[in-house]
Nucleic acid binder design. Structure first.
Lengths: 347, 347
DNA sequence: TTCAATGGGATAAAAAACGTCCAGCTAGAA
DNA sequence: TTCTAGCTGGACGTTTTTTATCCCATTGAA
């Protein structure tokens, strides 16, 4: 942020919010084009009237066009989007926050995207896109990639660009179906990743909640064993981070499980492990899947989670997270994390 | 104007006007401090409500302070003023317009100040200040400076800074009293310049409208002759440019004179000469004073005139203006001049 | 051909901005 | 010292803008 911009903001403080809002609208149109007012207002988290006011202005500025099919971004609009990209980041203080988060979480790489995915639907896509881009840079060096489930992971798969097929890539479902919605299961995600990139995928199907004996037995099965070997060889792990209670509910966990999770003070969840606020493992779902040690042996770990509501979970998970982890998150989560940390320090 | 600012303006077109307005208000406060809302609203050409809204904001931004004596600019405010100075110029397109005016008027140096002195009283002071600064840079090299009358010239005298006295400077009234208000007579201005700079001054008192014989006689008088010699030695001429009819009225010219001026199609006036739209001399007041040839022999000529209403007069005068002339004007006049020139080209 | 989604138009209600006063205070002039 | 001009902050009815929702003709895809 140069001196000129600082002075500008000082003289026109209302500019910041306005610029961010318009930029986000323009960005979303670019993302979803062609799109209409109503749909846009849902995705962008604004009222129809507001969208209308702003899009009318954007059209007058020849940044977008309105056709009967919907609104599209013009080449001028694209240019503006490109030129202001870094500026909007700087202005939102994202660069500063990234450095703060790196210190707080004890990892060397954090990427923060503008706005809050809790409030604005489109932000989840932006997170997905950013994670997808990051992941793609790894494709040359690494081949075995383990992926978990969740809506965030699904967002990444949607944003993977369909380039020239890379047959060498192998996507491995990190867990079996954990009672989740099929669309968001690790197996589904792995297959989606493979489809987009032209690689192959390996799925893991195993019923939940096996008895100890049955579990032992299954682990000796060749199909399962093969998966466990693959986990050992995993180069890259891509995973989401969940809120402990939310996950328990979503997975229709048994009363017994829920009790353990709750009494243990679980805050976050990742790979089927539940962590408390200090990062200690409180509970783990006893089923086949990647083990924490195996995750830690991976060359690169990509953690993806956004929204202010995920702040506590992110903080919890990163208490003991492997160092090479890269976190992709959003402004909402980042601000909340910083706020929580400050409060903690004050005590 | 860099690409970032262009993109910013594209996305926030309302920003330009707002920035200019706030900048101007801040600048005016800095100029006139301490100053109250009402006085400010008169000088700045805005309603009290508007001034109130903006000054409240400026205070919240800690750019100004409000005390019982009035509003003053803080150090932060000064900083913002300094940092945005060039930007506001660029944004208003003043730099571009300066180049355009240089071509249109056929001179090598034009300085344009923001806004229109017809609308905003404070702009006249800004013009005066800029002209004063320019003039001060010449003090080292030149000593004999001829000045004319008029409110613009008075504005310059007000803005001359009181530095260390320079006894060598000699300010010469370019004309006698031409029936104008005493405060705006060349004689008064010359004395004001001298007082501010510590130099000396020479005045010329001669009744208007002398008969031809009396005039001839007077020209032989030593006092008058001395002045005429001084005009020959003049290094620098500083003068305003007036609207022909306006000047005729202000000088209480005789019906005969007014008729000559009107029938001749006079548009502009300078040094008592009236020029038509092609720069041709239509009429000259027969009285002692600097002659056009003497003006042309000066090393530097500083023409100062602002406000949209002066546009035609400026265009007229510069049709045959001496080349080393520097013009100090404002945005209002500049825009109008460019507009008029464009219309002329279209025909 | 049907149908869902689009931009544009319209309107009543709510909110913000505006113009204009006044009261009370203070600093500097008389 | 008193007086006065000029200042800020508060108030309030009026005007203008913004907002929340409709509806409608059109269009492009299923």
């Amino acid at each position: 942020m140069d001196a000129l911009s600082v002075a500008q903001r000082k003289l026109m403080p209302e500019m910041s919010e306005l610029l961010k809002k318009r930029y986000q609208i323009l960005q979303t149109i670019n993302f979803e084009q062609p799109i209409g007012r109503r749909t846009l207002s849902e995705i962008a988290g604004a009222t129809e009237r507001e969208i209308r006011k702003e899009t009318d202005l954007l059209r007058n500025q020849q940044l977008i066009e309105m056709k009967t099919a919907g609104m599209t971004v013009t080449s001028q609009g694209l240019e503006v989007l490109e030129k202001l990209k870094v500026f909007v980041r700087e202005m939102s203080g994202l660069t500063d926050m990234e450095i703060q988060l790196q210190t707080i979480l004890g990892i060397s790489n954090v990427v923060i995207l503008p706005q809050d995915s809790d409030e604005i639907l489109a932000v989840k896509s932006h997170i997905g896109k950013e994670a997808a881009r990051l992941l793609e840079t790894l494709f040359g060096r690494y081949e075995k990639i383990a992926v978990t489930g969740g809506s965030t992971m699904a967002a990444i798969s949607k944003e993977l660009s369909i380039g020239k097929p890379n047959r060498a890539l192998q996507f491995i479902a990190a867990r079996g179906g954990l009672g989740e919605d099929v669309l968001h299961q690790a197996n589904t995600i792995a297959s989606a990743f493979a489809e987009k990139t032209g690689g192959s995928f390996k799925t893991l199907y195993l019923p939940d909640h096996l008895s100890a004996e049955a579990f032992e037995m299954m682990m000796k099965e060749p199909v399962i064993k093969e998966m466990m070997d693959l986990y050992d060889q995993t180069d890259v792990v891509v995973h989401g981070i969940g809120n402990a209670e939310e996950m328990a509910v979503r997975r229709h966990s048994s009363l017994e499980e829920v009790e353990k999770i709750r009494s243990g003070g679980a805050v976050s969840e990742a790979f089927g492990y539940y962590f408390d606020k200090d990062g200690k493992i409180v509970y783990r779902i006893r089923t086949a899947g990647i083990q924490l040690e195996q995750v830690q042996n991976a060359s690169t770990i990509l953690a993806v989670a956004g929204g202010g509501s995920k702040a506590r979970a992110i903080l919890s998970y990163f208490k003991n997270a492997p160092n090479p982890t890269v976190l992709v998150t959003d402004e909402g989560a980042a601000r909340k994390i910083i706020e929580l940390t400050k409060k903690l320090e004050e005590l």
